[in-house]
Design a binder for these strands. Structure first.
Length: 475
RNA sequence: GGCGAGUUGGCGGAGUGGUGACGCAGCGGAUUGCAAAUCCGUGUACACGAGUUCGAUUCUCGUACUCGCCUCCA
């Protein structure tokens, strides 16, 4: 297979990917904070890195790639929900209610991401399972002079790591000058960030050398990545908004903790998502969850296709127009590959496009070409590297609202139409044929007639009620 | 204020130092009782200005506009 080139945020350039160990390619992606249902922005990195995971497995072998994606289950929004439930009379300790909330959120997340055709990672660590490692790492940072304790907090001293800011292209001085937030008085430098903070009675906490408390956000990924992958690994990914401060901080901690300047080889960041040209936000009313999108009847495969139509390093605009276009394309391809066995290997040109920094759009163009050439086996096999045209995501086209009982009725109408057309061909009067056709269309049926055949196919607007209102008439 | 990204035909969206993909829509044709679907054909696009060059949409600089991050949002 051809080489894979990836854009590395660290070097700001596209590089040929060369794993540290071809028998154990390791990718860590920052996962969700599990406080609520995943919104459609959360789905972007999941889909992008799922495609990379599939591509790496294609190249290095399924058993030689490991993918880790964490669940951040320590968070004040989670605490707030748990506290609110307790106040409302829920049974259990605060810790139990926190766990209940994170468990249910994780289950939703996996369900929603699965519906979009994503594979589950090999490792899905939860922050709460790695508190000991985080405490140990924080202690080591203090011991080595990279962190300090102040007012019950443990803070990382950003001036102690000379490359701080290099990943996101910022300097401590510039950021300090432009800081818009009030600086906590106990910080030596305004950019210093929290490794550990104290918890009061109403907050979950763990014992530590600095008293009962909980970890800061950034330390978890450093601790979990090292535990699972060691001090050096291949790819670290996430949304662009994580580049600073999250990844910058994570890198600083890990690098001074023994990874030197060599923690993740490649840092990758996907651009953000917009909705109808605007930033998704609750106040604009264009904020919605993956669940809501699926609930509108949009197939997971269609949603996935929309995401993959835009290169991951460009802002992606979610529009209903794109959704409709994608659906049309997939209906066509699904019909084309139905009953066809996938080829043994994906198309070479397709892999070339995908290997060029995950040019999913370019790869889709190659799929269009394969479709036009009528090579269904190759189309199917290639598309599956994108997680499209898979068996898992199949079945939505027939689920357009038509129940199996409706099918009999549809066939009955087809018979009427056929009979009406046959007699009209003799009489020259097509009035009843046209009436049946428009009634069928009105019920959300696509009318396909050739000289020999009559087919009625339910589409997205299928309406069973109107189907049963169709009368045979005097035809 | 600091840092960064982007600006391609009606829409979406790749890519390239030299006859400007691809998809959708549109238009023309085949087909059809008429349609739909399908097939064939079809497009005077690369924000603006300057520079480098035999030649720039592609490289450099500047301008305008849009967007993101700097607030534990992917």
């Amino acid at each position: 297979m051809t080489e894979i080139k990836l854009y590395n945020t660290k070097t700001r350039s596209k590089e040929v990917f060369s794993p540290l160990d071809v028998n154990d390619v390791r990718m860590y992606v920052c996962g969700p904070t599990v406080y609520d249902r995943a919104h459609i922005g959360n789905a972007r990195p999941v889909i992008v890195f799922d495609v990379l995971y599939r591509l790496l497995r294609e190249k290095y072998g399924t058993d030689h790639v490991r993918y880790a994606r964490n669940f951040t289950d320590v968070d004040d929004k989670i605490n707030a929900t748990a506290a609110a439930r307790k106040a409302a009379g829920a049974v259990g300790t605060l810790e139990e209610l926190v766990q209940e909330r994170t468990d249910e959120t994780i289950a939703w997340y996996l369900e929603d991401m699965g519906a979009l055709g994503n594979l589950e990672p090999d490792h899905a660590p939860r922050a709460t399972e790695y508190i000991d490692e985080m405490v140990a790492m924080s202690a080591m940072l203090i011991e080595q002079g990279h962190a300090y304790e102040a007012d019950g907090h443990v803070l990382f001293d950003v001036t102690s790591y000379e490359n701080y800011g290099s990943l996101s292209g910022r300097s401590v001085d510039d950021m300090t000058a432009g800081a818009r937030v009030e600086v906590a008085p106990y910080k030596r430098n305004p950019m210093d960030f929290v490794l550990w903070k104290p918890s009061d009675e109403g907050q979950p906490g763990w014992d530590s050398p600095w008293g009962r408390g909980r970890p800061g956000w950034h330390i978890e990924c450093s601790a979990m990545a090292e535990k699972l992958f060691g001090k050096r690994f291949d790819i670290h990914g996430g949304g662009l908004d994580l580049a600073f401060p999250h990844h910058e901080n994570e890198k600083a901690q890990s690098c001074v903790c023994g990874s030197e300047d060599d923690f993740a080889q490649v840092w990758m960041h996907n651009e953000m998502l917009q909705v109808e040209g605007k930033k998704m936000s609750k106040s604009l009313g264009n904020f919605f969850s993956v669940q809501e999108l699926l609930g509108k009847g949009h197939a997971g495969e269609v949603i996935r296709f929309v995401y993959l139509s835009t290169h991951y390093r460009k802002p992606m605009d979610w529009t209903d127009r794109k959704r409709a276009d994608s659906e049309r394309t997939l209906r066509q391809w699904r019909a084309q590959v139905s009953g066809v066995d996938a080829a043994n290997t994906p198309d070479a040109e397709f892999l070339l496009a995908l290997g060029d920094d995950l040019n999913t759009h370019g790869a889709i163009q190659v799929l269009h070409k394969l479709s036009r050439a009528g090579d269904a086996a190759l189309l199917k096999r290639s598309a599956q590297v994108l997680g499209l045209l898979t068996d898992e995501l199949d079945g939505w086209i027939t689920q357009s609202g038509a129940q199996s009982g409706d099918q009999e009725r549809i066939e009955q109408v087809e018979d009427w139409l056929r009979a009406a057309r046959n007699s009209a061909m003799l009489s020259g009067n097509f009035e009843s044929v046209d009436r049946l056709k428009s009634a069928a269309r009105n019920a959300g049926l696509e009318v396909r007639m050739t000289k020999e055949t009559v087919e009625l196919i339910p589409d997205a607007g299928f309406d069973a009620e109107k189907l049963y209102e169709i009368k045979r008439g005097d035809a």
